[in-house]
C-alpha cells in the first residue's frame, strides 16, 4: 500500500524516537510492542502491527545490554519489519514473513549501533575540549548531537525502506557477511579494556594494586555474583582502614601495638 506524505513523516519520527531509545533504554520506544504499535497507528494498520509487535516482543524478552556488550537491536528490527509489513499490504497474513526478516534486521542494527558508539568516541573528545573552556552549552550540544545520531541510525534506514521498497532491503540483509558481524562483536568484547585501562591509570597507586589482584582472582569464581564481590570489596576496605588506623595510633605507645603476635614476642 502507498503512504501519503504525512504518514511518511510520522513513520520517520517514530523511527527516530526508537533509534534514540535503542541507546537510552529509558522510555522504551524501541521495544517491539511499542515501536510496531506506533508504526501501525500512524499508517492505519494498527491490528497487524500490534500482533507483529507482540510476537517480536516475545522473541526479544531476554535481549539486554549487559555491561559493555551490545544486544541485538530491537529498534531496527521492530521499525523496519513493521514498515515492511505495512508496505506488503497483506495485513495480519504478512506477520510471519515480517518476523522472519526481523532477526537479520536486529543483527544489522547491532552493526549500526557499534558504528555509532565508535563515532560517539570522537564526540566526547569535543566535549573534553568544551569542558576545558568551561563551556556548558557546547558539552550539552555534543551530547544531544550524539543522541540525534542514534535517532538517525534508525530513521535513515526507515526512510530508505520507504523510498526503495522492501525487496532490495531483503537482498541486502542476506548479502551481509557473517564474518564481519561476528568479528566486530569479538572486537567489541575487547574494546571494553580501553575504558578500564584509563580508570586504572588514574586510580592506581602502590597501595591499592593488591586489591586489584584480589578482585581479579576472586572474579574467576563464577558463583560469586557482582553483588557478592561488592560485599567482599567493602569488607576489605573496612578491614584495611581499621588496621591502618590501629597501626598508626599504636606506634607511639608501647602497651598495645594492635599486633597480638608482636606483643607476645615483645613480652617473651
Amino acid at each position: 500500500m502507498d503512504l501519503n506524505i504525512i504518514q511518511i513523516i510520522l513513520v520517520v519520527i517514530v523511527a527516530f524516537l526508537a533509534g534514540m531509545e535503542g541507546i537510552l533504554d529509558e522510555f522504551h520506544f524501541h521495544q517491539p510492542v511499542i515501536a510496531c504499535t506506533l508504526i501501525g497507528l500512524v499508517t492505519g494498520n494498527l491490528v497487524p502491527c500490534l500482533i507483529l509487535g507482540g510476537t517480536l516482543q516475545m522473541i526479544a524478552l531476554g535481549w539486554a545490554n549487559i555491561g559493555a556488550a551490545v544486544a541485538p537491536d530491537a529498534a531496527l528490527a521492530s521499525i523496519a519489519s513493521a514498515i515492511i509489513l505495512v508496505l506488503g499490504g497483506q495485513g495480519s497474513a504478512g506477520v510471519s514473513s515480517a518476523i522472519a526478516i526481523a532477526v537479520p534486521l536486529a543483527v544489522a542494527g547491532l552493526l549500526l549501533t557499534i558504528i555509532c558508539r565508535t563515532i560517539a568516541t570522537a564526540f566526547v573528545h569535543f566535549m573534553d575540549a568544551a569542558a576545558k573552556e568551561g563551556n556548558f552549552r557546547k558539552v550539552e550540544l555534543w551530547h544531544i548531537i550524539a543522541i540525534c545520531m542514534q535517532g538517525v541510525r534508525i530513521a535513515l534506514p526507515a526512510a530508505l525502506i520507504l523510498a526503495i521498497g522492501a525487496g532490495p532491503v531483503r537482498g541486502l540483509l542476506v548479502s551481509m557477511p557473517t564474518w564481519l558481524t561476528e568479528g566486530l562483536a569479538i572486537g567489541g568484547g575487547m574494546v571494553v579494556a580501553v575504558g578500564y585501562a584509563m580508570v586504572i591509570n588514574m586510580m592506581a597507586t602502590k597501595e591499592v594494586w593488591p586489591f586489584f589482584a584480589i578482585g581479579f582472582v576472586l572474579a574467576t569464581v563464577s558463583q560469586i555474583t557482582l553483588i557478592g564481590l561488592g560485599a567482599i570489596g567493602v569488607a576489605l576496605a573496612l578491614i584495611y582502614i581499621a588496621l591502618s588506623k590501629r597501626g598508626g595510633s599504636g606506634n607511639g605507645g608501647n602497651s598495645n601495638t594492635g599486633d597480638p603476635l608482636g606483643d607476645i614476642i615483645d613480652n617473651y
Binding site: V208, F211, F212, G233, V234, L236
Partner: peptide, 16 residues
C-alpha cells in the same frame, strides 16, 4: 580500594 578491587573483577568478567 573498593574501586580497584571492582576493576580487577570487571576486567576479568566483562573484557572478553
Amino acid at each position: 580500594i573498593l574501586g580497584m578491587f571492582i576493576l580487577g573483577a570487571l576486567v576479568n568478567r566483562w573484557v572478553s
